[in-house]
Design a binder for these strands. Structure first.
Lengths: 254, 254
DNA sequence: CGGTTATTTGAAATACGTCAATTCAAGTGG
DNA sequence: CCACTTGAATTGACGTATTTCAAATAACCG
């Protein structure tokens, strides 16, 4: 599996080397949901130096212990459960700038684990978010809330995907979702996930996923190779996905 | 489908006819999570008279509108999404005494609808829960929180079920979950759901579900008939379910 | 480079879905 | 109480999506 390089940072802001620019993915994502005051930005920046690095495969948040709110600064992780016989279900992928361990799911512990998929850098944000509970005026709070809601909407999509889409549709929808979440919706974007990982997220076998990917490639819709996705036919991809991924416009049912 | 009679109420408390005993399923469920003060019980009772009845098939909570917190006093409902081509995914079933429209999912609106599966009686509890936000001492608040968490844990189970269990395992797990949620874990319990409904919850076709049910019946594990489930071999059922349903012993939480 | 982990492919087995009838249960109006 | 209607449960036959097994490349990692 490819160890993705950290995303290129937009470092007009970073002057000092350590603990400043590293927080950029997080700030960028928060800014999509709410305007932060200068003071809040500073608060977030101060998290940077306390970040901690974990290697791929590490369990960041395990069974019983509630570790509190965290943000991923670089690298990819996922929340998952593994059955006794080895079957695995991935609940959600966690991208740079996204968080885990807060919100609703946090306390439903013992039923999910958070695992690093690549090498990751993580900061503990529980102290940061402690103060802003329900004051509800702060941009930090609004941004966090929005992120939780989006995660939640994604989970609903995920259930529909798991239960009612075909493998082909699942795959298309997943790629579309990742395109949105990796930033812009650019035709090319990083997707440093193993086919086995994607399969475990979508509830299909690696072998079959591989065949679906080959089909999508043959049809010149999208090409997944060495950690990068290249969308050649966005329209066909969206059509195959059936659902519009959470976090954008959308039409919905009943 | 059989229109289930309202569950037999334990009416040592109800003296007056209207709006008192009707709230019993709700109180009973809350009591499982937290002790309520007399005043709180009274508050809940006062909801009774304002209950509203809806016929099977009605949409209780639709698209964009956030209707606020509600509790089901009698009858069964479900949260779901319907795709344009008619495919349906049920996210969760809602039993008497359970609620909807609060918690995390509430605001992820436009992505799910709540629909009555049988005739249901519903009360709006947003006013009731308005006051107790984060005061965090009240039993009402603790009970509500616990119900939200259990719902959340269930959703994780549901994802595993949809993605990684076989139809046989899905069915066994679902019945086991319903046995727990309908109250005690008694071998016989009401399950007023159409096979089509169960199929749409589990992500399998009606026809196939029917065959699985017949197999379970032939194996003398569990018998679903006319709205009632009879568990004959609890051990075999649990074994087939693979997962232990949320909300009980387990290794678990915090 | 040599060992390990991911991706790919073929062939065969199955689980599950679709189609189409039939039976069964419950409710309605006469 | 009996046609009659309607929706749900069942069943058979058949097609297909997806899994499993096994083996060959290909890509990566130190």
């Amino acid at each position: 599996m490819v160890e993705r390089a950290a995303p290129v940072l937009n470092l007009k802001l970073a002057g000092v080397a350590d603990g400043l620019g590293v927080v950029a993915p997080l700030l960028r994502r928060m800014a999509r949901f709410a305007d932060l005051t200068a003071a809040e930005i500073e608060q977030v920046r101060e998290l940077g130096p306390s970040r901690r690095r974990w290697r791929a495969g590490t369990t960041l948040l395990a069974d019983g212990r509630t570790t509190g709110a965290h943000f991923v600064l670089s690298g990819w992780a996922c929340s998952q459960r593994v059955l006794r016989d080895g079957r695995r279900q991935i609940f959600d992928v966690i991208l740079p700038g996204e968080g885990f361990g807060f919100g609703p799911i946090a306390e439903a512990q013992g039923r999910q684990a958070v695992v690093a998929l690549t090498s990751v850098e993580v900061v503990d944000a529980s102290a940061l978010l402690e103060g802003v509970h329900d004051t509800s005026v702060g941009g930090l709070w609004r941004a966090t809330r929005a992120m939780i809601h989006e995660e939640d909407a994604r989970r609903l999509d995920h259930m529909v995907r798991l239960g009612r889409l075909t493998a082909y549709e699942k795959t298309a929808h997943f790629i579309l979702e990742m395109q949105r979440r990796t930033g812009g919706g650019a035709p090319n974007f990083p997707l440093p996930l193993t086919q086995e990982t994607i399969g475990d997220a979508l509830g299909i076998s690696v072998v079959h996923l591989n065949r679906v990917l080959r089909q999508l490639r043959d049809e010149n819709v999208v090409d997944l190779r060495s950690g990068v996705a290249r969308v050649h036919d966005a329209k066909a991809l969206a059509a195959a996905a059936i659902l519009a991924p959470a976090g954008e416009e959308q039409n919905s049912a009943r």
